[in-house]
Amino acid sequence: MGRATAADGVLEVPAIDISAWTTGTEADRTAISAAVDEAARTVGFMQIRGHGIPESTATAFADALDGFFGLPMEEKKQLRSPSPEINRGYTPPRTEKLSLSLGVPATVEDLFEAFNVGSEATSFPELDLPETHYPANLWPSVPGFREAVGEWCMQAGGLAERLLEIFANALGLTDGYFTPFTDHSLDVLRMNHYMLPEGELAIDRDQMGMGAHTDYGIVTVLWADRVSGLQILDTHGDWHDVLPEPGCLLVNLGDLLARWTNDRWLSTMHRVLPPTDSRGRVVRRRSAAYFHDGNWDAEINCLPGCVPAGAEPLYPPTTVSRHLAEKLAGSRAGKLNENSPREAARLRAAKNG
Rank of each mutant, 00 (worst) to 15 (best):
G2A: 06
R3A: 04
R3V: 01
D8T: 08
V10W: 11
V13C: 04
A15Y: 10
S19N: 05
W21I: 04
E26I: 03
D28H: 01
T30S: 14
S33T: 06
A35I: 01
A39L: 02
A39G: 06
T42R: 05
T42Y: 05
F45T: 06
S56M: 14
F61T: 12
F68W: 00
F69S: 13
G70F: 06
P72N: 10
E75Q: 04
K77A: 03
S81T: 00
P82L: 01
P82E: 00
S83D: 12
P84V: 00
I86E: 12
Y90M: 02
Y90A: 03
R94V: 02
T95S: 09
L98W: 14
L98M: 14
P105Q: 05
E109H: 13
E109D: 13
F112W: 12
F115T: 00
S119W: 00
A121C: 03
A121I: 02
S123Y: 08
P125T: 02
L127T: 07
P130H: 05
P130D: 08
E131G: 06
F145Q: 01
F145I: 00
R146N: 00
A148T: 00
V149H: 02
C153G: 09
M154N: 13
Q155Y: 10
G157C: 10
R162W: 11
R162K: 15
T174N: 11
G176C: 05
T179D: 13
P180F: 08
F181A: 12
T182Q: 11
L186H: 14
D187Q: 15
L189I: 08
R190S: 08
N192I: 03
M195H: 15
M195C: 09
L196M: 07
P197C: 09
G199M: 06
L201R: 11
R205W: 02
Q207Y: 01
M208I: 00
T214R: 05
Y216D: 14
Y216N: 13
I218D: 15
I218E: 13
T220D: 14
T220Q: 11
L222R: 05
R226Q: 09
T235N: 14
T235M: 05
G237N: 07
W239R: 02
P244T: 10
P244G: 08
P244H: 14
P246Q: 08
L249A: 15
D255I: 08
L257Y: 04
L257H: 10
W260A: 10
T261L: 05
T261P: 11
N262S: 06
W265C: 03
L266N: 02
V272E: 15
V272K: 14
V272C: 15
P274M: 08
P275A: 08
T276G: 13
T276K: 15
D277M: 04
S278M: 10
R279W: 09
V282N: 03
R284F: 03
R285I: 03
R286D: 07
R286Y: 09
A288Y: 09
H292A: 10
H292D: 06
P304K: 12
G305C: 06
V307H: 05
P313S: 11
S321E: 11
K327C: 11
A329P: 10
S331N: 01
S331H: 04
R332G: 02
A333M: 04
G334L: 07
E338L: 09
N339C: 10
R346I: 00
L347G: 06
A349M: 10
N352H: 14
G353Q: 11
G353W: 04
